[in-house]
Design a protein around this nucleic acid. Structure first.
Length: 438
RNA sequence: GGCGCCUUCGUCAAGUGGUUAAGACACCGCCCUCUCACGGCGGGUUCAAGGGUUCGAAUCCCUUAGGCGUCACCA
């Protein structure tokens, strides 16, 4: 059987769109699941759009996502060069060959492909089956531009053949130009690769409309997501499920190795998928929860400066969707938000501002007596106070939490916050709140 | 506009002629809890519409509608 070889062929734009990342992922997963090769090829034939250092950017991004090319500009391989601008003589040779055989012609310093005017061209796509397009829909394509560079439609065919790519995995936007490629393969007498055209990744705008995922939908590049504080593994995992699902399994959390082991082409979806940040948040949270306090403290390090990192990590890792959520969650430790009497009202625990004052006063007395400011002692004292007062635990905790943090949601319980704040600050805040409540 | 692709809960999706149409996220409710989170339990007119074929259709065929893509010396 022919060796499975796939490729990811981005143009160097300095931006790794999530849809591109997914294409790369699927090409990688398919190759690896079949024991084949995954190639990185740079399609930099548009000089106007070239961005310096974009190749390194792409390589770094793939590395971060753990998508490792077997061949590429800096990965070695027997089919170098893997950068199209370095292969100009190759394209020229094949273009001239087409001119000689009568399948192309010169015009305005460029070489154009001569399309048949009648008949139709059919090709097989793994996801869509046979697709037929009338040749009359095809126009005489430019193969070699007047600046000597090939067009995508030409270079892509030449390289895929020369690099022995067996499966072309790319976006649906290429479906309608595939007949042109097929014709080229036929002109040269080359064997056709297998086509797999992936549905696009969509984004949902605030007004509810759905369109191809783009910057208007917020953070949509791998790097945007990393900067927001999602783990690369979580992003890759989520993106993998956006258009693919495992057979005979409901598993959703996958390591890269598990993805490779479970991947198969028939699990691919042919309809567009909407990128859902809520689900990404959930999945990301699953990854954080599975981490040890130490590991979480390490990835969240820069957000934890100035605190007992490991302790804070233990409180935060079950509540965080993305690392950039952290500052807002712990800002109250440094500075108490403005007093808001509304917060002292809580129906569930039957707490009101007035009731809060009644609870706070004796609680402060108790805490003032505490010399050993540790979690255990604090917990013990508060529990005793609760038992003595005959109130529900929640009724006591609520006003304390609000007075200490001025927010309904905090990382950790009241005991942890008291501990984190220290005795002096805790009592200052408690007294200040009591004063305002009275 | 021509051509092409797509259409199962709000979202990701399983499903390939006979199922109570899985599961997950989100949402809502309840429970637990030191609030939130975590955890547990439960809930929801989901097969775009209309025609066929068939004893039987989300699954096969046709039509319609909508969405997306493509018609570059961009990829």
């Amino acid at each position: 059987m022919k060796r499975i070889r796939t490729r990811f062929a981005p143009s160097p734009t300095g931006y790794m769109h999530i849809g591109n990342l997914r294409t790369a992922l699927y090409a990688y997963l398919f190759a690896k699941s079949q024991g084949g090769d995954f190639i990185l090829r740079i399609e930099d034939t548009d000089r106007a759009r070239y961005v310096p250092d974009a190749v390194e950017f792409i390589e770094r991004t793939l590395a971060a996502a753990k998508i490792i090319p077997d061949e590429g500009p800096h990965h070695g391989g027997n089919f170098a060069p893997y950068v199209q601008s370095e292969r100009m003589d190759i394209y020229k040779k094949y273009a001239e060959q087409l001119v000689e055989s009568g399948h192309a012609y010169h015009e305005d310093g460029a070489i154009r492909q001569k399309m048949p005017r009648v008949g139709e061209t059919t090709f097989y796509d793994v996801l869509h089956g046979n697709i037929t397009i009338a040749n009359s829909e095809l126009e005489d394509q430019v193969l070699l531009k007047s600046d000597g560079m090939p067009t995508y439609n030409f270079a892509n065919v030449i390289d895929d053949h020369l690099m022995e790519v067996s499966h072309i995995i790319r976006g649906t936007e290429f479906i309608t130009s595939t007949p042109k490629h097929v014709l080229l393969y036929e002109f040269f007498g080359w064997e056709l690769p297998t086509f797999i055209h992936l549905a696009p990744v969509m984004g949902k705008a605030e007004d509810g409309t759905v369109s191809k995922l783009s910057k208007r939908h917020g953070a949509t590049s791998f790097n945007d997501l990393i900067e927001a504080g999602y783990l690369p593994e979580a992003i890759t995992n989520y993106v993998a499920l956006l258009g693919w699902s495992p057979k005979n399994s409901c598993q959703e959390i996958f390591s890269m190795d598990e993805l490779i082991a479970n991947f198969s082409l028939d699990g691919l979806s042919k309809s567009p998928a909407v990128f859902d940040y809520a689900k990404l948040d959930w999945m990301s949270g699953e990854y954080f929860k599975a981490m040890t306090d130490e590991n979480f403290a390490a990835v969240a390090d820069k957000y934890l400066a100035g605190y007992d990192k490991i302790f804070l990590a233990s409180l935060l890792k079950t509540r965080v969707a993305k690392l950039s959520d952290i500052p807002a969650m712990i800002a109250f430790l440094k500075e108490l938000p403005p007093f808001d009497i509304e917060l002292f009202t809580n129906k569930r625990n039957k707490v009101t501002p007035q009731k809060s004052a009644e609870i706070l006063a004796p609680a402060i007395k108790i805490l003032e007596q505490v010399d050993l400011w540790t979690l255990d002692t604090l917990n013990e004292k508060i529990s005793a106070f609760v038992a003595e007062s005959g109130l529900k635990v929640g009724a006591v905790m609520w006003p304390l939490r609000i007075a200490l943090s001025m927010q309904k949601v905090t990382p950790g319980g009241v005991t942890e916050i008291l501990y984190l704040l220290g005795k002096e600050t805790s009592l200052d805040r408690l007294n200040a709140a009591l004063e305002k409540l009275q």
